[in-house]
């Protein structure tokens, strides 16, 4: 009684082969987007740089070379061999600071995203699953958070909690969270009406099992995409907070803080602001491009054929 529609193509049997095939399929759709591949490579490079920072960096990020204050980059007039991208107003090597700064950026991205993702998923699941007044209360609260300009809200929170990188990250996570809540809620509401959820309910599954085992795994694709976008947002916001003096505190080589310290030298020494700015730009762009490709690969609605 075998179905005639069974494909003759060899089907993977072991779960390892299955995973390989799914990965292959993912890569096929992901790699169709060239920008995404470039973004991925830039991001991977960034990770490598961050991890190997102590080995790569030519100098310590904190060491102040009094004899080399505001040295321009090596290829311009007055550049010195030891300082590839020049030095800042107190004689620290900019390249080394940027390399160590990558550690900060990645840490901020991971921490903020994890925090807002878990919080958002939890709250969104509850709102989307129970609906009714619980949903109304939660969503209006999220609307209020969204009504503030996110940076302003983060500033207020930091002002209350006190300026430090940790508090800044918590504040940013809080402002990013409503996006996850909304996304999770929408996905949960859509999935909840599907027959497989009803079937699980008929099998006797309780609300917790339904929420976390049945529904949540099917809502991950949009969340992963949103997570990558938040990752870049978090880096950007943290840099902005740093620039305003409310995030990482000097002498930490955080990119936004570096910009802030260099503010007054913008006209005299272009390199002290250009390179941290470029680092932020490239990182955020790469992650956003990657997020685009992830959406192409994970969102079945966009899949062709």
């Amino acid at each position: 009684m075998a179905d005639i529609m069974v494909d003759k193509a060899p089907e993977p049997v072991s779960s390892a082969a299955l995973r390989r095939q799914m990965l292959k399929e993912f890569w096929f759709y992901f790699s169709e987007n060239r920008g995404a591949v470039i973004g991925l490579f830039v991001f991977l490079l960034l990770v490598v740089v961050a991890v190997l920072a102590p080995l790569i960096a030519p100098h310590s990020p904190f060491e102040q070379y009094r004899d080399a204050v505001l040295v321009p980059p090596i290829w311009t007039e007055g550049g010195r061999a030891g300082y590839l991208l020049g030095t800042d107003p107190v004689g620290r090597d900019i390249l080394s600071r940027l390399i160590y700064g990558a550690q900060y950026s990645l840490f901020i991205g991971v921490f903020v995203t994890t925090l807002s993702l878990t919080g958002g998923i939890l709250v969104g699941l509850i709102a989307g699953y129970y609906r009714g007044w619980v949903d109304t209360v939660i969503m209006r609260l999220m609307d209020i958070i969204l009504a503030f300009p996110s940076l302003l809200l983060a500033l207020v929170l930091v002002a209350i909690l006190g300026p430090s990188l940790t508090n800044g990250m918590i504040a940013i996570a809080l402002t990013l969270q409503p996006h996850f809540v909304r996304l999770t809620r929408a996905a949960v509401m859509a999935e909840k009406t599907r027959d497989y959820v009803t079937a699980a309910r008929l099998a006797g599954a309780g609300p917790l099992r339904l929420m976390f085992r049945t529904i949540l795994p099917n809502c991950t694709a949009p969340l992963i995409v949103q997570a990558t976008l938040s990752f870049s947002n978090a880096i950007l916001d943290a840099a902005a907070l740093g620039f305003l003096g409310m995030g990482a505190q000097p002498p930490a080589p955080e990119w936004g803080t570096m910009l802030a310290e260099a503010r007054e030298f913008i006209l005299r020494a272009w390199w002290v602001v250009t390179f941290p700015g470029l680092a932020i730009l490239i990182t955020v762009l790469a992650i956003n491009l990657m997020g685009d490709g992830l959406r192409d690969a994970l969102d079945p609605k966009l899949k062709r054929s």
Partner: peptide, 9 residues
């Protein structure tokens, strides 16, 4: 024909 992850279909 369409191109898919597993080749031309």
């Amino acid at each position: 024909e369409f191109e898919t992850a597993t080749g031309w279909f």
